[in-house]
Design a protein around this nucleic acid. Structure first.
Lengths: 250, 250
DNA sequence: CGGGAGGTTGACAATCGTCAATCAGAGTGG
DNA sequence: CCACTCTGATTGACGATTGTCAACCTCCCG
């Protein structure tokens, strides 16, 4: 049974929801029995576009994606980054009209689940419903931290903070040890931190020259000195609402 | 019966939840029967403080409050503004550990509802549970807009956008026509838009000198030219997820 | 080998922050 | 009624961070 669970495509989502709030066997069975269609999406493909009226929610099974808003001026702001197990589109599908786009960073595998199936499982399995609600509450907490990050920290601190958040979340998803893949261009990092690509470049180099990080290759970052990086980024993982044992690592 | 509803202190919350998703009579009855204690809090009082482990959720009955984060550097960032009917603290109470503070702007009346009662009504009345979930989804949407606002718009646009959001939300809550009270100091407006108080002052004057707004008194704003203000603020109310008929007004 | 995307760099400009002084208005006590 | 005080608003001079523009470089890939 547990082997079956491990291999089930929706297992990463189950793992995450069960992390937020304990689910019983019936809850887990219902989750894995959710109707879904698995699809591969190329790099830079849209999972949802602003203005869409999506009929399905989407779970990341592999790869990475970002949520972004494009302003009237044409400027782009990335509002969050997502990885395996993330429910990347409860937001848009439940609110009916997408207020932002979700785009893959690399070729990714995703599962689409009908909106009605989400609503039904939330109704019939209150634990699952609460876990999903909890997930959106944590999402909101991360958004708040980003508001503070962008609004009140300078470029260097912002960038260090982003690197820290990504490292902790990757580790939590079981995706990284010391080095980690961060498949974003400097322009995308700039869009996530509210600065220009040129300034992002200077900021990242500054972190590297000070020995906080090392760029192993164009898209792989190694954290040389976690303590200093966390300090430079004023990073406190409280806003991720992890359990106490994982907080110790961060 | 309807008179009773109108006078019930939790009526503003019911109104808002019923706006998000239709509730039946049993749902409404259960909502108004929620155990709660009503309290008056002085201006600048804390409803919750970062780090608290609140046992109650809080609904605004009158007055205004803000959610804020204080960074390691001591800088403050306001992440949202709240008014009558807003569920200002589902976030903190359900996540157990407060990742931000909630502070009143003026003397306010609030209702505290035990966390367990919230969980119970969500479980027993799925419609109510979904409406509250929906409310946090909309909260998250507003956070996303703020990230984009602060990250990618200049000071003048940011401030105009904030004034627009506030005007629309006040009207929706039935609290304002043309003029409206905005009981925030320029320092607080600066903390909400990620700038300094001095720059906020210059930005607001610029909006006033261009005839977009007029300051009737120190805390009352009159929108002289909604169309120009909305345009200056790149304001599109889609992210508030209002019904189509209210969107027309905005 | 050519083309293209993304990274790097420098010079310069604009926005925004800092500091410090002054002003206006509300509340308070004599 | 009048100082007195405090908070918040206003203003100017100056400096720092960040943006803009434009060039060039360096991979990677077909």
């Amino acid at each position: 049974m547990s082997e079956y669970f491990l291999q089930h495509p929706l297992q990463p989502m189950l793992r995450k929801l069960n992390y937020w709030t304990p689910l019983d066997e019936a809850d887990k069975g219902a989750l894995l029995a959710l109707p879904h269609s698995i699809q591969h999406i190329d790099a830079h493909g849209y999972i949802v576009q602003e203005g869409d009226k999506p009929t399905h929610s989407c779970v990341m099974l592999s790869g990475y994606s970002i949520r972004e808003k494009v302003l009237a001026s044409g400027a782009r702001q990335i509002v969050s980054i997502h990885m395996r197990g993330d429910l990347v589109d409860l937001q848009n599908s439940l609110l009916r009209c997408a207020d932002h786009s979700v785009q893959t960073l690399v070729r990714s595998k995703v599962a689409y689940i009908p909106r009605e199936a989400i609503l039904a499982i939330a109704r019939e399995h209150p634990n699952v419903g609460f876990a999903m609600w909890y997930d959106t509450l944590v999402d909101a907490s991360v958004f708040r931290e980003w508001i503070a990050n962008i609004g009140r920290r300078d470029a260097r601190t912002r960038m260090a903070h982003l690197f820290c958040e990504f490292a902790v979340r990757l580790r939590l998803a079981g995706l990284a040890g010391g080095d980690y893949e961060l498949p974003m261009t400097q322009e995308q990092l700039a869009d996530a931190t509210g600065m220009t690509a040129v300034h992002a470049n200077r900021t990242i180099r500054s972190l590297e020259e000070n020995g906080l990080i090392r760029r192993v290759s164009s898209r792989v970052i190694h954290i040389e000195n976690w303590k200093e990086l966390a300090s430079a980024g004023e990073f406190d993982s409280a806003y991720l609402h992890l359990h106490d044992d994982e907080r110790a690592i961060a």
